[in-house]
Write a protein that binds this DNA or RNA. Structure first.
Length: 835
RNA sequence: GCCGAAGUGGCGGAAUUGGUAGACGCGCCAGACUCAAAAUCUGGUCUGGGUUACUCCAGGUGCCGGUUCGAGUCCGGCCUUCGGUACCA
C-alpha cells in the first residue's frame, strides 16, 4: 500500500504530456466546430497558402511529406493568429503511371488502388493536425475534375495552341510510353524505371507553350520566387537573340537557313552543318556520298537525343558532297551533316565558324577543315595562330567592308546589311520546346478528339464532356495502349458526319492536371465552370506556394503558362499563379534521397505514435534551415520532446491561473520586481524574435528562441499571478503555430474557454520591454578581445572610455605602448589600436 | 564543362549582415534524487597550454593570400560536397 502511494505521487508530479489524448481532442474539436473552413466572402486580409498536392501512392505519407506540410502549416497558422483569413487546402494528384504499373504487376485496378490510398492518406493527413479545409479537397482522377482538363484542351485547340505532329519522341520500351525530354535522365534512361530510352516517331499532341516564351520570361520579374528557381526557368526558356541567314546552294535553287547569334562572324564560315534528319539532306546529297551519308545516319539512329548531344562525346559527321554559298562573299563552302546539329533547335542548320566557336573549332580540327580568323582578339596580332576558338569581342578582320568594326557593333551592322539585301533578318530563338502532353497510357485524362476517316481531327463537343475513362480495360503491357484496345471506348461515330470513327487513344500528361488545380480548390464541385471565377478573382494568385525545387522547370513553368492562357480566355484577372514560392529542402537518409527501392524510407508513424504529431513536427522544424533540408537522424528528437513536456508541466502547474489573475496589456518596467523585469524583457524580446523568424520560414531559430525563453522562466513562481498570466498567455500563443495541439491545450489550461484558432490572437512586443538598460561592450586591443565592460545602453564614447581605461586587463595590454586610434561602436565594441 | 548553393565543436546547427564565434538542441562528463534503474533537476563541455585561485595565455569557422582598427561574414585564387544543365549554333 505504502509503495503504491509513493509511486502514484511520483507519477502525478511529473506526468508525461499525454499527446495521443490531447491531439485527438483538439483534432475533434477543430473538425466539429469547422474551425478550418474558409469563409471566402471575407476577402480582406485573404491568404491562400498552398502546398503542392500529394501523389497518392501505396507508400503513404513519409518524412518528406511531413517536412513539406508541417512547417507550411505552421506558417499558415502563424498568419491565421495574426488575423489573416487563411485558405489552406489539400488534395490528390491522383492520375499517373505508378498506379498503372502497380496494376500491371498486381492486377489491382488503378482506380481501386488510388481510391484506397486516398482513404488511407486522408486519415494520415488528419492526424498531422494541419489546418486543411476539407471541404476543398479534390482529386484529379474524378470525372468532375478531369472534364475541365478536356475543356481546357478544347480551348487550346480552338486557339491553335494544341496541335498534333509526328516527331521524334523518347520512348521507354519498358513503360511503353512517351517521355518528355525533362523526364529522361542525363544518362538517357527513363526517370521512372531506369530503362534506356529509345527514339520513336509517333503522332503526339503538343501544347504550344513556346507562344508564351517571352511572357514567361518577363513574368519572372514580377514574382517573389527564389532567384535560383527563376534562373533555372530563364535558362530553360533559353532566349537568344541573333539573325537568321539564308545560304544558297551551289547548282540548285534550294536555300539553307541558319540561325546564328554571331552574324559578325559570317565571313569566317568555312562549312555548313545540317542535322542528319534535315529534309534537305536527301535532296542535296550527291550520288558518290549517298552511301556514306546513309551509313552515318544508321550509326546514330540508336542514340537518344541526350546521348547525341552529350558534350562528353566526340563530335562525328560526314560531308554530303554539296556546297553552300555564303551570302556575304559568294564563297562556296562544303555542307556536312553532324550529330551536333539538332533538328529541334533553330532551323536545324548551323553555319560553322571554327575560328570563333568552340564546337566548330573542335570539329574543324578533327576533319581538317579550314579555320579562318575574322575577329581579332585585343592584344593579339592578325597572323598569330589560333590555338582555340576566340569567342569574345574584338575587331573585325578579313570581313570586306566591315573590317575595323568592333564585333559587337558588327552584329548590328551585318544584320542590317542582310535585311537590306534580303539575305536574312533579325531573329529571336528559344531553347524552350512545345509541351508534349500525349501519353500512351490508361490512367489519365482522355484526350477529347475523334479521328474520322472523312473529316480528320474532330474535337469532341463541349456539351459531350467529360469523355469518361472506361473502367473495364486490359492494362497489361503491349504494343497498343489499353484505351486503344478497348472496343467500346475507342469506336464512335464521327460527330460531324456519322461515319465510323475512332477516339484518340492517348491520355494527358498529369502536369496538365496540376497546372490549374489551385483554381479548382476554391470550389471543387462547381459544375458549370472550370472554377468559381468570382472567387478566383478575389483569391488568386496563391499568396504562398511551397513545394520541391525539382519542379522548377516542369510543373512550375507549365502552371505559369496555363495560367496566362486562362487569363487570355478572360477567366482570371491575374498574370501569375503563385506570388511567393518557397522550396523546402530535401530530407535524405544516409546521403540518398528516400525511396522505396533504396529501402531507406523513414516511416513517420513510429515517431508520431511514440512522441506525437507536435513533437515530430517541431523536431523536423528544429533540425535546421527549412530550405536546406538535410540528412535524416532521429538523434535529437528527445530535445523537442523534453521541450513539449516542460511546457506542458509549466501550464499544468498553473492550471486555471486566469481565474484569479487579470494580466495587463503591458507593464511599466520600473514598477516590476527584478525577476519580473528580467522575464518581461525576455518575453517581449522573444515575441519580436519569433514573429520575425516565423514570417521568414526560419522555424529552427523561432523554436530556439522559445526554448531560451522557457529556460529563462526559472523564477516565474516568484512573480505575481497577474504578471505570470501575462507571460504564459503570450507563451501559449507563440507555441500554437509551431505545436498547435499543445498551444490550444496550454491556452485552455490557463482558464480560457475559447480556442486560439477559433478566436485568433497574436501579441506584439511592447517596445519598452525590448530595451535593455545596460549592455556589455567588448573591449579590444588591436582587434583582440581583452575584456568586457558593462555600461548603460547608448552610452557616449567619453563615458565608456572612463570605464575602459580603468580596466586592469585593458591596461595590461596597452601598458608602455602608444595609442594610435580608438574606435567606438555604440553598444557593441571599444577597440584601442596601439603600437 | 557551364550555372547555382553550401563547407563552423563529437553531432544538428546559431551569429542582428563587418563588431564578444559556437545561441538553441543532441550526445558526453560530474553531481543531486533513488535500495537501484528510468525519468527529472543542477553544473561542465571548441582545441592546446599555464594557474592555489581564473576576470589567464595562444590558436581556431575547407585551403592560400588580400582589404580593414576588426573578417565565419568583403575581395582574389584554389579544394571538396550537393543540386541544376548537357554541343542551343
Amino acid at each position: 500500500m505504502g509503495k503504491f502511494a509513493i509511486n502514484f505521487k511520483i507519477f502525478n508530479e511529473n506526468m508525461r504530456y499525454p499527446h495521443a489524448e490531447i491531439e485527438a481532442k483538439w483534432q475533434k474539436f477543430w473538425e466539429e466546430k469547422g474551425i478550418h473552413k474558409t469563409d471566402f466572402s471575407k476577402t480582406e486580409k485573404k491568404l491562400y497558402t498552398l502546398v503542392m498536392f500529394i501523389y497518392p501512392s501505396g507508400a503513404k505519407l513519409h518524412c518528406g511529406h511531413w517536412y513539406n506540410y508541417g512547417p507550411t502549416d505552421t506558417w499558415a497558422r502563424y498568419r491565421k493568429l495574426k488575423g489573416y483569413n487563411v485558405f489552406e487546402p489539400m488534395g490528390y494528384d491522383a492520375f499517373g503511371l505508378p498506379a498503372e504499373n502497380y496494376a500491371i504487376k498486381t492486377g489491382i485496378h488503378p482506380q481501386d488502388s488510388t481510391l484506397k490510398n486516398i482513404e488511407d492518406i486522408r486519415q494520415q493527413l488528419k492526424k498531422m493536425g494541419c489546418m486543411y479545409d476539407w471541404d476543398a479537397e479534390l482529386m484529379t482522377c474524378a470525372p468532375e475534375y478531369y472534364k475541365w482538363n478536356q475543356w481546357l484542351f478544347l480551348q487550346l485547340y480552338k486557339k491553335g495552341l494544341a496541335y498534333r505532329k509526328k516527331a521524334p519522341v523518347n520512348w521507354c520500351p519498358n513503360d511503353q510510353t512517351v517521355l518528355a525530354n525533362e523526364q529522361v535522365q542525363a544518362d538517357g534512361t527513363c526517370e521512372r524505371c531506369g530503362t534506356p530510352v529509345i527514339q520513336k516517331n509517333l503522332y503526339q499532341w503538343f501544347f504550344k507553350i513556346t507562344d508564351y516564351a517571352e511572357e514567361l520570361l518577363d513574368g519572372l520579374d514580377k514574382i517573389n520566387w527564389p532567384e535560383k528557381t527563376k534562373l533555372m526557368q530563364r535558362n530553360w526558356i533559353g532566349k537568344s537573340v541573333g539573325a537568321e541567314v539564308t545560304f544558297g546552294v551551289d547548282g540548285s535553287d534550294d536555300e539553307i537557313k541558319v540561325f546564328t547569334t554571331r552574324p559578325d562572324t559570317l565571313f569566317g564560315v568555312t562549312y555548313v552543318v545540317l542535322a542528319p534528319e534535315h529534309p534537305l539532306v536527301d535532296k542535296l546529297t550527291t550520288d558518290e556520298h549517298k552511301k556514306q551519308v546513309e551509313e552515318y545516319r544508321d550509326s546514330i539512329k540508336s542514340l537518344t537525343e541526350i546521348e547525341r548531344t552529350s558534350t562528353v562525346k566526340e563530335k562525328t559527321g560526314v560531308p554530303i558532297g554539296a556546297y553552300a554559298v555564303n551570302p556575304v562573299n559568294g564563297e562556296k563552302v562544303p555542307i556536312w551533316i553532324a550529330d551536333y546539329a539538332l533538328i529541334t533547335y533553330g532551323t536545324g542548320c548551323v553555319m560553322a565558324v571554327p575560328g570563333h566557336d568552340e564546337r566548330d573549332f573542335e570539329f574543324a580540327k578533327k576533319f581538317n577543315l579550314p579555320i579562318r580568323k575574322v575577329i581579332l582578339e585585343p592584344g593579339t596580332k592578325e597572323d598569330d595562330e589560333l590555338t582555340e576558338a576566340f569567342t569574345g569581342v574584338g575587331t573585325m578582320i578579313n570581313s570586306g567592308e566591315f573590317n575595323g568594326l568592333k564585333s559587337d557593333e558588327g552584329i548590328k551592322k551585318i544584320t542590317e546589311w542582310l535585311e537590306e539585301k534580303g539575305y536574312g533578318r533579325k531573329k529571336v530563338n528559344y531553347r524552350l520546346r512545345d509541351w508534349l502532353i500525349s501519353r500512351q497510357r490508361y490512367w489519365g485524362t482522355p484526350i477529347p478528339v475523334i479521328h474520322c476517316p472523312e473529316c480528320g481531327e474532330v474535337p469532341v463537343d463541349e456539351k459531350d464532356l467529360p469523355v469518361e475513362l472506361p473502367y473495364d480495360v486490359d492494362f497489361s503491357l503491349g504494343g497498343e495502349s489499353p484505351l486503344a484496345r478497348n472496343e467500346k471506348f475507342i469506336n464512335v461515330k464521327c460527330p460531324k458526319c456519322g461515319t465510323d470513327a475512332k477516339r484518340d487513344p492517348d491520355t494527358m500528361d498529369t502536369f496538365v492536371d496540376s497546372s490549374w488545380y489551385y483554381f479548382r480548390y476554391l470550389n471543387p464541385h462547381i459544375e458549370e465552370q472550370m472554377f468559381d471565377k468570382e472567387r478566383a478573382d478575389k483569391w488568386i494568385p496563391v499568396d504562398m506556394y511551397v513545394g520541391g525545387a525539382e519542379h522548377a522547370t516542369m510543373h512550375l513553368l507549365y502552371a505559369r503558362f496555363i495560367h496566362k492562357f486562362i487569363r487570355d480566355l478572360g477567366l482570371t484577372n491575374s498574370d501569375e499563379p503563385f506570388q511567393t514560392l518557397i522550396h523546402q529542402g530535401t530530407i535524405t537518409n544516409q546521403g540518398a534521397k528516400m525511396s522505396k527501392s533504396k529501402g531507406n524510407v523513414v516511416n513517420p508513424d513510429e515517431f508520431t505514435v511514440d512522441y506525437g504529431a507536435d513533437v515530430f513536427r517541431l523536431y523536423l522544424m528544429f533540425m535546421g534551415p527549412y530550405e536546406m533540408g538535410g540528412d535524416w537522424s532521429d538523434k535529437g528528437i528527445s530535445g523537442t520532446d523534453r521541450f513539449v513536456n516542460k511546457v506542458y508541466d509549466l501550464f499544468k502547474r498553473n492550471e486555471n491561473l486566469l481565474n484569479d489573475a487579470s494580466p495587463k496589456d503591458k507593464y511599466d518596467v520600473d514598477s516590476l520586481s527584478d525577476d519580473e523585469k528580467f522575464i518581461y524583457k525576455k518575453t517581449n524580446q522573444t515575441l519580436k524574435k519569433v514573429d520575425e523568424e516565423l514570417e521568414q520560414f526560419h522555424f529552427n531559430t523561432a523554436i530556439a528562441a522559445l526554448m531560451e525563453l522557457l529556460n529563462n522562466l526559472k523564477n516565474i513562481d516568484k512573480c505575481s499571478n497577474d504578471f505570470k498570466a501575462y507571460v504564459l498567455t503570450r507563451f501559449a500563443v507563440m507555441t500554437a503555430p509551431l505545436a498547435p495541439h499543445l498551444g490550444e491545450e496550454c491556452w485552455q489550461l490557463l482558464g480560457n474557454d475559447t480556442s486560439l484558432f477559433e478566436n485568433p490572437l497574436w501579441f506584439d512586443a511592447d517596445p519598452a520591454g525590448l530595451v535593455e538598460d545596460a549592455v556589455n561592450i567588448a573591449v579590444q586591443v588591436n582587434g583582440k578581445l581583452r575584456s568586457t565592460v558593462q555600461v548603460p545602453v547608448d552610452s557616449e564614447q567619453e563615458k565608456v572610455k572612463e570605464v575602459v581605461f580603468k580596466d586592469e586587463k585593458v591596461l595590461k595590454h596597452i601598458d608602455g605602448k602608444s595609442i594610435v586610434k580608438e574606435i567606438y561602436v555604440k553598444n557593441k565594441i571599444y577597440n584601442i589600436v596601439v603600437r
